[in-house]
Design a binder for these strands. Structure first.
Lengths: 242, 242
DNA sequence: CAATTTTCTGACCGTTTGGTCAAGTTCTCC
DNA sequence: GGAGAACTTGACCAAACGGTCAGAAAATTG
């Protein structure tokens, strides 16, 4: 897949893939601003003028790089889907169920911590019926879940973990981890803190990991506590899969 | 708390609590339609004309009963919060942790099944920073979680369940159960079904219950499998509480 | 250093949308 | 049954918003 976000999900060539020098930088700048605004107010609530202001550019400049509001929104989504898949792919052919699931949950929690706006845009899109990424969900995501589920089912068959439907396990893990981004406002309110900082996320991560592992019948101390380094945005650690 | 939804969260008297005969019925009719439309497109995306159409009323009629779009939105939210709290209150002073948590999860899953639009409006509001119900989250909800958490902490202290932070357990349960309403589109796509029916919800409920109970160190067969009767909307089973 | 392409931007426009209004119609209650 | 309140609605705004355009500035190129 070409890295240029403006190519969205291909479809039409959309302004030919000219690799203008300035273009790439400005598009990224606009996409960042757009992600923030879309996350805060949703697609309909976001105003092009606000995005322009957030990107510190005059409004017509946005339309120079992105045909329309919807095109910009789709570009933002395309950007996010890449990230989402990359993080999800971490659950590789790890030999040990506990380690694999632990890594996966931790990766998801890092995602919620470092890309909360991306998570919120994604959540918003799905809540409203996924009008733009329905195809992605039914194709790529479904296929990915089926691949990963096969591995987990194997572990279940080998009595290496409690019997469960892997697909619902995925739903549960996605929900539990993404809630720390999407519902951060609620969590902050209940915890009585102004914002979820490193401490809160560390605590939350441990709780979720324990809950998931125990829930899967996988006790024992979690192995590697990888330092919570910020994953590089443009070159995510795309592990194998299959 | 007065049942009239239009009283919202009080604040201003808002059109005096006149109990017009027709008023009550029409307001309910409008609120139902508004909930559906707000759930599908969010606050900003919803158009008064669409709500009017959904309610089968001319647009000015909406403004006769609700001052403004925002007032209508708040009324819808107030409606939802009542429901939300009621369902949450089910986790009473149940003697048995497994039974209590099991009941709670099942109640939440019923909520997702029967009031998906309510759940989506709520989710939307929170994702966008809870501009209207921030106070509710910091007051009522926080207090409720603290009360319930005390009970769970007691169980933990008595070694009746695995050690964990009850607040994060709540976040996890909310996330896992609400995802079947808010993210139904995604789940349907991954499962490859056109809609989540009774079968899917039954299966999902069992998976989530097992995951939670096992995750809390509470194994053993789930006790009562209460028939999944639709809870009455206006008179929810308000149990006592702490 | 032209010539030409790419990038930038102030001013402008057509539509959409929340909200209003005044003139009805129906209900309520004595 | 009639006076007054409650309710209904077609016609109408003003503001907001996505999008356009023509011309100016930079970049790029030969």
């Amino acid at each position: 897949m070409p890295a240029t976000a403006s190519s969205a999900r291909s479809e039409r060539p959309e302004a030919a893939p000219k690799k203008g020098g300035i273009r790439r930088a400005k598009e990224a700048q606009i996409l960042r601003a757009a992600e923030r605004v879309f996350a805060r107010t949703g697609f309909a609530g976001a105003r092009m003028a606000d995005i322009a202001a957030a990107a510190r550019l005059p409004k017509p400049n946005l339309h120079y790089y992105f045909r329309s509001k919807r095109a910009l929104y789709r570009a933002v989504l395309a950007n996010i889907l890449e990230l989402w898949l990359a993080e999800t792919d971490i659950i590789a052919a790890d030999a040990d169920p506990a380690a694999a699931l632990g890594h996966y949950v931790r990766a998801k929690m890092r995602f919620s911590r470092f890309y909360p706006d991306a998570s919120r845009v994604f959540a918003n899109e799905i809540i409203h019926g996924a009008p733009e990424i329905g195809g992605f969900l039914r194709q790529e995501l479904k296929a990915l879940v089926e691949r990963k589920s096969a591995a987990i089912s194997a572990w279940v068959a080998e009595r290496r973990m409690a019997p469960l439907d892997p697909r619902h396990l995925f739903f549960a893990i996605w929900a539990m981890t993404q809630t720390y981004a999407d519902f951060a406002t609620q969590i902050e309110a209940v915890l009585g803190v102004p914002a979820l900082g490193e401490d809160e996320f560390a605590a939350a991560t441990e709780e979720v990991v324990r809950l998931v592992l125990r829930g899967c019948g996988l006790d024992g101390a979690p192995k590697s506590r990888v330092s919570a380094a910020r994953p590089s945005r443009r070159r995510p650690p795309v592990g194998s899969s299959g």
